[in-house]
Write a protein that binds this DNA or RNA. Structure first.
Length: 207
DNA sequence: CAGTGCCT
DNA sequence: ACGA
Protein backbone atom coordinates (compact mmCIF):
# COMPACT_ATOMS: atom_id res chain seq x y z
CA UNK A 1 0.00 0.00 0.00
CA UNK A 2 1.34 3.43 -0.90
CA UNK A 3 0.15 6.66 0.52
CA UNK A 4 0.86 9.99 -1.12
CA UNK A 5 0.49 12.47 1.67
CA UNK A 6 2.79 15.11 0.31
CA UNK A 7 1.27 18.38 -0.81
CA UNK A 8 -2.07 17.45 0.71
CA UNK A 9 -3.82 19.40 3.45
CA UNK A 10 -3.68 17.94 6.97
CA UNK A 11 -6.14 15.07 7.31
CA UNK A 12 -6.31 14.44 3.57
CA UNK A 13 -4.82 11.14 2.46
CA UNK A 14 -4.56 9.70 -1.03
CA UNK A 15 -3.72 6.03 -1.69
CA UNK A 16 -3.34 5.58 -5.45
CA UNK A 17 -4.00 2.02 -6.61
CA UNK A 18 -4.86 0.78 -3.11
CA UNK A 19 -6.80 -2.14 -4.60
CA UNK A 20 -5.13 -4.25 -7.28
CA UNK A 21 -7.09 -5.60 -10.22
CA UNK A 22 -8.25 -8.86 -8.58
CA UNK A 23 -9.38 -6.95 -5.49
CA UNK A 24 -11.25 -4.45 -7.70
CA UNK A 25 -13.01 -7.33 -9.47
CA UNK A 26 -14.03 -8.84 -6.14
CA UNK A 27 -15.33 -5.47 -5.01
CA UNK A 28 -17.38 -5.05 -8.17
CA UNK A 29 -18.88 -8.51 -7.64
CA UNK A 30 -19.81 -7.54 -4.08
CA UNK A 31 -21.35 -4.28 -5.26
CA UNK A 32 -23.38 -6.11 -7.90
CA UNK A 33 -24.87 -8.17 -5.07
CA UNK A 34 -25.66 -5.00 -3.14
CA UNK A 35 -27.35 -3.50 -6.19
CA UNK A 36 -29.32 -6.70 -6.80
CA UNK A 37 -30.80 -6.31 -3.32
CA UNK A 38 -30.95 -2.50 -3.17
CA UNK A 39 -31.46 -1.20 -6.71
CA UNK A 40 -29.85 2.00 -7.98
CA UNK A 41 -32.30 4.89 -8.03
CA UNK A 42 -32.20 8.55 -9.05
CA UNK A 43 -31.87 10.86 -6.04
CA UNK A 44 -33.63 14.24 -6.12
CA UNK A 45 -32.61 17.61 -4.80
CA UNK A 46 -34.41 19.07 -1.79
CA UNK A 47 -37.22 21.55 -2.59
CA UNK A 48 -36.72 21.61 -6.37
CA UNK A 49 -37.02 17.87 -6.89
CA UNK A 50 -34.36 18.17 -9.60
CA UNK A 51 -32.84 14.82 -10.50
CA UNK A 52 -29.16 14.34 -9.74
CA UNK A 53 -27.04 12.95 -12.58
CA UNK A 54 -25.68 10.04 -10.55
CA UNK A 55 -27.62 6.93 -9.60
CA UNK A 56 -27.34 5.84 -5.99
CA UNK A 57 -27.81 3.09 -3.51
CA UNK A 58 -26.30 2.22 -0.12
CA UNK A 59 -25.20 -0.60 2.07
CA UNK A 60 -24.76 -0.61 5.83
CA UNK A 61 -27.05 0.10 8.78
CA UNK A 62 -27.75 3.57 7.39
CA UNK A 63 -27.87 5.03 3.91
CA UNK A 64 -27.63 8.61 2.66
CA UNK A 65 -30.73 9.61 0.74
CA UNK A 66 -32.30 12.80 -0.60
CA UNK A 67 -35.67 13.67 -2.03
CA UNK A 68 -37.77 16.72 -2.76
CA UNK A 69 -39.84 16.69 0.40
CA UNK A 70 -37.46 15.61 3.15
CA UNK A 71 -34.04 16.59 1.81
CA UNK A 72 -30.69 15.14 2.76
CA UNK A 73 -30.67 12.56 5.54
CA UNK A 74 -29.63 9.11 6.64
CA UNK A 75 -32.20 6.36 6.95
CA UNK A 76 -32.14 2.63 7.53
CA UNK A 77 -34.27 1.62 4.54
CA UNK A 78 -34.16 1.91 0.76
CA UNK A 79 -36.49 4.77 -0.32
CA UNK A 80 -38.13 2.74 -3.09
CA UNK A 81 -38.23 -0.83 -1.78
CA UNK A 82 -38.62 0.07 1.90
CA UNK A 83 -36.23 -2.74 2.78
CA UNK A 84 -33.18 -2.40 5.03
CA UNK A 85 -29.90 -1.80 3.22
CA UNK A 86 -27.69 -4.86 2.63
CA UNK A 87 -24.53 -5.34 4.68
CA UNK A 88 -21.27 -3.57 3.90
CA UNK A 89 -18.92 -6.05 2.13
CA UNK A 90 -16.06 -7.39 4.26
CA UNK A 91 -13.39 -5.92 1.98
CA UNK A 92 -14.69 -2.45 2.71
CA UNK A 93 -14.78 -3.04 6.46
CA UNK A 94 -11.15 -4.14 6.19
CA UNK A 95 -10.31 -0.99 4.22
CA UNK A 96 -11.94 1.11 6.94
CA UNK A 97 -9.89 -0.63 9.62
CA UNK A 98 -6.70 -0.10 7.64
CA UNK A 99 -7.21 3.52 6.73
CA UNK A 100 -9.68 5.30 9.04
CA UNK A 101 -7.79 5.12 12.32
CA UNK A 102 -11.26 4.94 13.88
CA UNK A 103 -12.26 2.15 16.24
CA UNK A 104 -15.95 1.90 15.40
CA UNK A 105 -17.02 0.47 12.06
CA UNK A 106 -18.65 2.54 9.30
CA UNK A 107 -22.44 2.76 9.50
CA UNK A 108 -23.01 3.80 5.92
CA UNK A 109 -21.56 3.04 2.53
CA UNK A 110 -22.97 5.26 -0.19
CA UNK A 111 -22.70 3.75 -3.67
CA UNK A 112 -22.69 6.32 -6.49
CA UNK A 113 -22.79 5.22 -10.12
CA UNK A 114 -21.63 7.83 -12.63
CA UNK A 115 -22.39 7.26 -16.25
CA UNK A 116 -20.17 9.14 -18.69
CA UNK A 117 -22.16 12.40 -18.47
CA UNK A 118 -22.68 12.38 -14.72
CA UNK A 119 -21.11 14.96 -12.42
CA UNK A 120 -21.23 15.91 -8.78
CA UNK A 121 -21.03 19.57 -7.82
CA UNK A 122 -18.73 20.76 -5.06
CA UNK A 123 -20.26 19.85 -1.72
CA UNK A 124 -19.45 18.90 1.86
CA UNK A 125 -20.37 15.62 3.55
CA UNK A 126 -22.07 17.15 6.56
CA UNK A 127 -25.20 15.18 7.24
CA UNK A 128 -23.52 13.03 9.87
CA UNK A 129 -24.04 13.85 13.55
CA UNK A 130 -20.38 13.32 14.33
CA UNK A 131 -17.35 14.37 12.31
CA UNK A 132 -14.69 12.57 14.36
CA UNK A 133 -14.35 9.73 11.87
CA UNK A 134 -12.97 10.33 8.38
CA UNK A 135 -14.84 9.75 5.13
CA UNK A 136 -13.17 7.00 3.08
CA UNK A 137 -13.78 6.96 -0.67
CA UNK A 138 -13.04 4.24 -3.26
CA UNK A 139 -12.95 4.69 -7.06
CA UNK A 140 -13.84 1.83 -9.44
CA UNK A 141 -14.09 1.79 -13.23
CA UNK A 142 -13.45 4.76 -15.49
CA UNK A 143 -11.16 7.57 -14.41
CA UNK A 144 -12.63 10.85 -13.20
CA UNK A 145 -11.57 14.41 -12.58
CA UNK A 146 -11.96 14.85 -8.82
CA UNK A 147 -11.80 18.36 -7.36
CA UNK A 148 -11.18 19.26 -3.75
CA UNK A 149 -11.16 22.65 -2.06
CA UNK A 150 -11.17 23.76 1.55
CA UNK A 151 -13.77 24.08 4.25
CA UNK A 152 -15.23 27.25 2.69
CA UNK A 153 -16.90 27.18 -0.68
CA UNK A 154 -14.73 30.06 -1.90
CA UNK A 155 -11.45 28.32 -1.02
CA UNK A 156 -9.13 27.51 -3.95
CA UNK A 157 -9.44 24.01 -5.42
CA UNK A 158 -7.10 21.36 -6.81
CA UNK A 159 -7.96 18.58 -9.24
CA UNK A 160 -6.87 14.94 -9.31
CA UNK A 161 -7.39 12.40 -12.04
CA UNK A 162 -8.55 9.38 -10.02
CA UNK A 163 -8.23 5.82 -11.33
CA UNK A 164 -9.88 2.52 -10.52
CA UNK A 165 -8.62 1.16 -7.20
CA UNK A 166 -7.65 4.54 -5.78
CA UNK A 167 -8.67 5.41 -2.22
CA UNK A 168 -9.06 8.89 -0.77
CA UNK A 169 -9.70 9.71 2.89
CA UNK A 170 -10.77 13.04 4.41
CA UNK A 171 -10.40 13.34 8.13
CA UNK A 172 -9.34 15.76 10.83
CA UNK A 173 -9.10 19.31 9.52
CA UNK A 174 -10.13 18.05 6.10
CA UNK A 175 -13.26 16.19 7.20
CA UNK A 176 -15.54 18.96 5.93
CA UNK A 177 -13.75 20.01 2.77
CA UNK A 178 -15.69 20.75 -0.39
CA UNK A 179 -15.21 18.13 -3.08
CA UNK A 180 -16.86 17.01 -6.30
CA UNK A 181 -16.52 15.21 -9.61
CA UNK A 182 -16.14 17.44 -12.68
CA UNK A 183 -16.02 14.75 -15.33
CA UNK A 184 -15.79 11.08 -16.18
CA UNK A 185 -13.36 9.80 -18.80
CA UNK A 186 -15.25 6.96 -20.49
CA UNK A 187 -13.21 4.11 -21.90
CA UNK A 188 -10.31 4.52 -19.47
CA UNK A 189 -10.97 1.25 -17.60
CA UNK A 190 -12.00 -2.28 -18.51
CA UNK A 191 -13.24 -3.15 -15.02
CA UNK A 192 -16.95 -2.57 -15.59
CA UNK A 193 -19.21 -4.00 -18.30
CA UNK A 194 -20.49 -0.57 -19.17
CA UNK A 195 -18.68 2.75 -19.36
CA UNK A 196 -18.85 4.73 -16.15
CA UNK A 197 -17.52 4.94 -12.66
CA UNK A 198 -18.54 3.67 -9.25
CA UNK A 199 -17.66 5.57 -6.10
CA UNK A 200 -18.02 3.99 -2.67
CA UNK A 201 -18.04 6.31 0.35
CA UNK A 202 -17.73 4.89 3.84
CA UNK A 203 -18.99 7.06 6.69
CA UNK A 204 -19.54 6.96 10.39
CA UNK A 205 -22.85 8.74 11.01
CA UNK A 206 -23.33 8.70 14.80
CA UNK A 207 -20.82 8.88 17.65
C1' DC B 1 -24.96 24.88 -3.88
C1' DA B 2 -24.69 16.56 -3.65
C1' DG B 3 -27.64 22.19 -8.77
C1' DT B 4 -27.00 24.95 -13.51
C1' DG B 5 -24.87 28.02 -16.72
C1' DC B 6 -22.24 31.07 -18.07
C1' DC B 7 -17.31 32.70 -18.84
C1' DT B 8 -12.07 32.47 -20.19
C1' DA C 1 -22.34 33.70 -9.80
C1' DC C 2 -26.57 32.55 -9.24
C1' DG C 3 -31.31 32.45 -6.16
C1' DA C 4 -33.21 28.72 -3.57
Amino acid sequence: MTETGHDLAPGLRYFPDYFDRPAQEALVAAIRQVVADAPLYVPRMPKTGKAMSVRMTNCGALGWVTDKDNGYRYQSTHPETGRPWPAIPETLLALWDAVSGFAKPPEACLVNFYDPEAKMGLHQDRDETDFAAPVVSVSLGDQCLFRIGGTSRSDPTRSFRLSSGDVFAFGGESRLIFHGVDRIYPGTSTLLRNPGRINLTLRRVNP
